[in-house]
Design a protein around this nucleic acid. Structure first.
Lengths: 338, 338
DNA sequence: TTGAAAGCGCTAACAT
DNA sequence: ATGTTAGCGCTTTCAA
């Protein structure tokens, strides 16, 4: 097996260090020898050994992705894979490869300690769901390049990136108003459901900045499932005046909402506009199909990759960002205007 | 930076090679020194450098996963992530870490050539959707450890593993019979849809082995979407005698099927049993919920990991396996019996 | 602008 | 059972 850098040096009539410099784009090499060496590399079809490069450099050019990969997470979190794809693309563009490692919250600390001491990665991407205070402390203390996907649910100095759910709410409100709906309602998850909460906040802001108001009695909270979506919707339908548009915090709730409206004999989007967040395959399974404020979650992965690559170069910068890339996908459920 | 094997050797009063042997579980070390060295390693909190180990061994202890990771593949293929999770778990258990690389069919060959020449992985997991003839040839010719996820759609000598869709069909048929349905129909995708075809085959076998028959006029093929599912179902409902159970090749078709049956004023599961394959989140979104023959796709990932690890140890064995792990999930759509 | 040579930290063949 | 030592293939400092 294998050509080495020596073979190239010999064939090109130079030293190995010259070849190395050519490979790494060192400035001190004359254009002439650069071309010659490149030519030889091409002819010999030489590829430097990744292992030897890593070893000599003391780095791995690898980023490790840490998340909970227990059975069924994929179904519950179809976004994770998209994030991963975006991340991989962004990292590869910058010369890093991506490794994957499943772990739960408890084990995560040990895993990270292991990575640090064995130097088996140059950076870490950590899903917020497995971030604990000790882990955050470890990350901060070690100054190891990292980025957390999602807003940590406690104060910390870690680098993180998250979707701007508030802004998504603003977009939702704007669309509802633009379609001429007058009395907007919001049904969402419980207090601890931060995503729902932020979306609610955004809707409120969006309405208020247009001089409208999200009436308190039009806000309902419950579990995130279809049954609850139906239940909350029925509450709304019983009110006078009845709202004429319902913004649902997520798809599950929205599906229940649609059912309840149809069972009440009302027509979407004429009697009631319905809007939700995130474009899932089943957003298009209702009649009419659901208007959604979608999130370019792949973009978030790409941004995470970019930020992490920067962080590897400049380990002492802190990054805490909301990415603001929601996109409105208008479908039948809010198309009141022609 | 950091502790090296020399520090450990010095502290333990042995040579570096002894320490190395302890680390790698070499047989020739006495229990006594083993304990002493282990103790020192513990005390010093020493962790061998992955880079140095890889370099010295000439291997990476890494497996690369190759698949198409373009936008939206996650939605279209929710299974991929589950496979990945299973794979990671199985590989980790065997000392390998998993890397991820997105590529299309065309670029895949170059990527693999690069991996081979740079020795950047010890093995490859390749999704069948990006496998081309040249790539298969390269894999075979190079004897590089690999496993393809999914049955290649051409003859080849590569190692592969796939779901046993035929067997899933058999399970489906058995359940339908067991529930007392008399005239089974099958609606599925076009000829080129191999998954549908295999399931059909299985249903046929299952019925025949019970002395029944899948009548040719009860078999319809169309595109895999809801519209077509409805259309094919309406065809079936118009036939006399009408079938009393419909096996749908996939969820999309099944959803259309349910709609058509309900529009015709018939009752599932009394007048018509409905069964499909794969448990998706939306399998439970119909009323009644769909009985499905599910596939433990995570298990397939785990098996792939195991097979690949074996293949890395024994590069000259060929593996071409159907994993037979379908599981019947009985829900309302076929529960005719009490 | 180029080259010589000293590592990088570990493994494994060989010697004891 | 343990130790000695020659690599592994590259990067990088320093001298020329």
């Amino acid at each position: 097996m294998g050509l080495t850098i020596k073979d190239v040096a010999r064939a090109a009539g130079t030293s190995v260090s010259t070849v190395s410099k050519v490979i790494n784009g060192h400035y001190s090499i004359s254009e002439e020898t650069r071309q010659r060496v490149l030519q030889v590399i091409e002819e010999l079809d030489y590829h430097p050994s990744v292992n030897a490069q890593n070893f000599a450099r003391g780095s791995t050019r690898t980023v490790l992705f840490l998340a909970d990969l227990s059975p069924n997470t994929a179904f519950e979190n179809p976004h994770m894979f998209e994030i991963l794809s975006g991340l991989e693309a962004a990292l590869r563009k910058r010369g890093y490869s991506l490794s994957l490692r499943g772990t739960d919250t408890t084990a995560a600390c040990e895993v990270v300690e292991d990575v640090l001491s064995r130097r088996s990665a140059d950076g870490l991407v950590i899903h917020a769901s497995i971030l604990s205070r000790p882990l955050a402390a470890l990350l901060t203390r070690s100054h190891f390049p990292h980025i957390v996907l999602g807003l940590p649910n406690f104060e910390s100095q870690v680098n993180w990136i998250d979707i701007n759910n508030v802004y998504s709410g603003v977009i939702a409100a704007a669309h509802i108003l633009e379609q001429g709906y007058e009395r907007t309602a919001f049904i969402g998850g419980r207090e601890y459901d931060m995503i729902s909460f932020h979306r609610l906040q955004g809707v409120r802001q969006g309405l208020e900045s247009a001089g409208r108001k999200l009436e308190e009695q039009y806000i309902w909270q419950g579990e995130s499932n279809r049954q609850e979506g139906s239940r909350m919707t029925r509450q709304l339908l019983a009110m006078r005046p009845m709202p004429d548009a319902i913004i649902c915090a997520n798809n599950h709730i929205a599906l229940g909402c649609m059912t309840a409206i149809q069972e009440a004999g009302l027509c979407v989007p004429k009697d009631m506009g319905v809007l939700t967040f995130d474009d899932y395959p089943f957003s298009q399974m209702t009649t009419p199909e659901l208007t959604v404020v979608d999130i370019k979650v792949r973009d978030m992965g790409e941004q995470a990759g970019r930020l992490l690559a920067d962080n590897i170069r400049h380990p002492n910068t802190q990054v805490q960002t909301f990415t603001t890339n929601p996109v409105l996908i208008v479908r039948g459920s809010t198309q009141r205007k022609k």
